[in-house]
């Protein structure tokens, strides 16, 4: 085993364990912490693929900003240990079925790929900062701007909802 492969398996294992722990933890803060572990492990995987910019942004945006908000809200509401209602217990069996279906689908796809999984050889230009900015601001500038407009609408909607409570 080469060094990158070892690092890959450590990070991938960390991501999977984090994801499992996210679901199985009883307390919301512990779940949020597990999600942070997943985000950071994913960033490590991006780094392994040579996508330095994406890795850093993954940690800044997902690991930092978004998860801090999660933790902040959980702390602010002082959410306690998770409670099971009848409806949430009912969600178990269909969920398990979906898990099996998804796992089967992914396995089938991997098995059918005869070429084998490609290594991290063809990164670089595409994943570099200038590569990404060329894609975002030249090739896909209209979809990109439309998306940011959509987010702006969502932000304004949230502000309006928050303001309404005052009156």
């Amino acid at each position: 085993m080469t060094a990158p492969l070892v690092v890959f398996f450590v990070l991938a294992g960390l991501a999977v364990i984090g994801a499992l722990s996210l679901i199985l933890q009883k307390h919301p803060i512990h779940s949020a912490l597990s999600l942070i572990v997943v985000m950071v492990a994913l960033a490590g995987l991006y780094l392994l693929l040579g996508a330095e910019f994406v890795a850093a942004v993954q940690i800044i945006v997902y690991g930092g900003a978004i998860m801090v908000l999660f933790v902040f809200v959980i702390m602010l509401l002082n959410a306690g240990v998770e409670e099971h209602t009848n409806l949430s217990r009912l969600a178990g069996p269909p969920g398990l079925l979906l898990v099996v279906a998804l796992a089967g689908f992914i396995t089938a796809t991997i098995v059918r790929t005869t070429a084998g999984v490609q290594g991290s050889s063809q990164t670089g230009a595409m994943a570099s900062t200038s590569g990404i900015s060329n894609m975002l601001f030249r090739d896909f500038v209209y979809p990109f701007e439309l998306t940011s407009f959509l987010i702006l609408v969502a932000v304004m909607g949230a502000t309006v909802l928050a303001q309404r409570e005052k009156h």
Partner: peptide
Amino acid sequence: LNVGILALFAITALGVYGVALAGW
């Protein structure tokens, strides 16, 4: 190191958890 300053910001972004989790 091409992402120098971004890597620093990534580490700073995670730094808040130390304080927030200590408080909680």
